[in-house]
Amino acid sequence: MIISGLAIGLLLGFVFQRGRFCVTGAFRDVWLSGSKRWLTAFLLAILVQAVLVQGLLGQDLIVAKVPAIAWLGVIGGSFLFGIGIVLAGGCATGTYYRSGEGLIGSWIALVFYALLASFMKYGALQPVTTAALADKTELTTIHDSLGISAWLLVLVLAGVVGWLVWTQRVARQVVARPAARRSGLAHLLLERPWSPYASAILVGVIAAAAYPLSNATGRNSGLGITTPSANIVNFLATGDASRIDWGVLFVLGLIPGSYIAAKLAGEFRLRAPDAPTAIRAIAGGSLMGVGAAIAGGCTIGNALVQTALFSYQGWTAFLFTFLGVGFAARFFVQTHRRAGAQAVPVAPSDLVRAN
C-alpha cells in the first residue's frame, strides 16, 4: 500500500500544475491587490476536505493525528515560513510543481527547503526545534476545547466560504476565452484554464483520500511535505531506510506529476534564474525549511490539513503564515516597486499564475 503515496503524489502534482494551485499567490494577492479569489479557493479546499474527513472520522474509518499546540513555535515558525515563500516565489506546493515545470530557481529553493528542514529535525539545529516546540499546551482541536461538535465548525466554515464565493461571483468580470484548439477531455485538462474553485475541490478530495491510504501503511496523518522532504535528505545522508514511508513517496510523486502535466500542456521549459533570483531562492528556501520545522508543518501539513481537522495548530499557522506573507509582500515587493527595481522577490516573470 505504500505505493499509493506515489500515486497520490503524481495525481496531486498534475492538479497543482494545471490548477496553478499555490498558497503564496493566494495570500499575496490579498495584500497587494485586494483580490480574494485564490484565498477563497484555498478555503474551499479546506472545506471540502473537512466535510469528507469529519465524515470518515465519525465512522471510525480513519485515524488523524492532531498535535497539541506549541504557541511560540507555531506562531514564530509560520511567520518565518510566510516570509520565506514570498522570497522563494512559491510555497511548498508551488515550489514542487514549478520544479516539474523546469524552473531551476524552484529547484534551488526546494533543495534548501529540504536541507534546512532536515537540519532542524534531525541535524545540528535540532535543539532549536526542540526548544521552540517544548512548551506545549493541552489544546488540540477547537471543537474539543469548546465542547461542541466539529460539524458546527464545518457549518461556520461553509457559511464563510459560501459568502466569499458569492461575492467573488458578483464582482467577477466576464472575460472572453480564446477559441478552443481541441475538443473533449484534452481541451478540458490541458488547454482550458482551470477554475480556481474546480482545482480547490479536487485538492480537497485528494487530501481527504490520503488519510485511508496513508493509514493503511501505519501512518496516521494526511498530506504533508516538510517532514517527508526532510526524511529524503536524512535517508540520503544516513541510508536509514526507515525514513522512506508513504509521505516520502507522496512528495517524490509531485514533481513527475507536475512534469507530465506541463509537458502535455506544452508548458515545460528549463528556465535558469538570474543571480538575484537565485539568491532569493536560497534565502527563501532556507527560511521555509526553518519555519516549517519550528511550526510543525507548512501550508499543506498545517494550513490545509490541520485546518480541516479544526486544530489550533492549523488555524494559528494559517493566520501567521498569512501575516508573514503580508509582511514580506509589503516590505520586499512594494519597496522594490517603489525603488523601480526590475526584479521583485515574488517569482520570475514566467511564474505568473494564470487566473
Results as ranks from 00 to 15, higher is better:
Ala281Gln: 05
Tyr113Phe: 15
Ser286His: 01
Leu56Trp: 03
Tyr113Gly: 04
Val305Ile: 15
Ala292Ser: 07
Ser242His: 14
Ala134Tyr: 00
Ala7Lys: 02
Val165Gln: 09
Val161Gln: 10
Ile244Ser: 09
Thr95Tyr: 01
Glu191Cys: 03
Arg337Asn: 13
Ile225Trp: 03
Trp315Ser: 03
Ala354His: 06
Ala283Leu: 12
Arg98His: 12
Ala50Gly: 09
Ala70Val: 14
Val51Phe: 14
Leu39Arg: 08
Pro193Arg: 12
Ser221Thr: 15
Val165Ala: 07
Leu103Gly: 03
Val53Leu: 15
Gln306Lys: 13
Met1Trp: 04
Ser349Met: 06
Ala216Thr: 03
Phe14Cys: 05
Arg169Ser: 15
Gly123Lys: 03
Val23His: 08
Gln49Thr: 14
Thr130Asp: 13
Pro273Trp: 07
Val233Arg: 06
Val290Met: 06
Leu10Gly: 06
Pro228Trp: 08
Phe112Met: 02
Ala176His: 05
Ile108Pro: 00
Leu32Phe: 03
Val205Trp: 03
Ala179Lys: 10
Lys121His: 13
Gly314Thr: 06
Pro178His: 04
Leu304Ser: 06
Tyr259Glu: 00
Leu164Arg: 11
Val86Asn: 05
Ile3Arg: 00
Leu213Tyr: 00
Thr129Glu: 07
Pro127Asn: 09
Pro348Glu: 04
Pro196Val: 07
Glu101Arg: 12
Val15Ala: 12
Thr316Val: 14
Gly9His: 08
Thr40Val: 12
Phe322Ala: 00
Gly58Tyr: 05
Leu319Val: 10
Phe16Thr: 11
Ser33Gln: 09
Leu87Met: 03
Ser118Met: 05
Ala70His: 13
Phe331Val: 08
Leu57Lys: 15
Ser118Arg: 04
Arg172Leu: 06
Gly301Pro: 11
Ala176Pro: 00
Ala292Phe: 00
Phe332Gln: 02
Leu157Val: 09
Leu264Phe: 12
Trp107Glu: 09
Leu47Glu: 08
Gln306Asp: 15
Phe112Lys: 01
Phe81Cys: 02
Val352Ser: 07
Gln49Leu: 07
Ser149Gln: 13
Ala317Phe: 12
Ile260Trp: 14
Ser349Glu: 09
Phe81Asp: 01
Val346Tyr: 01
Leu115Gln: 04
Leu32Val: 08
Ala132Pro: 04
Gly340Gln: 12
Arg177Tyr: 00
Ala339Ile: 03
Gly94Ala: 07
Ile260Pro: 01
Tyr97Ala: 11
Leu44His: 06
Gly266Ile: 11
Ala45Phe: 04
Thr140Leu: 13
His336Gln: 11
Arg330His: 11
Val344Phe: 00
Ile3Phe: 02
Ala200Val: 10
Tyr96Met: 04
His187Lys: 07
Gln306Leu: 15
Phe119Gly: 01
Ala347Gln: 10
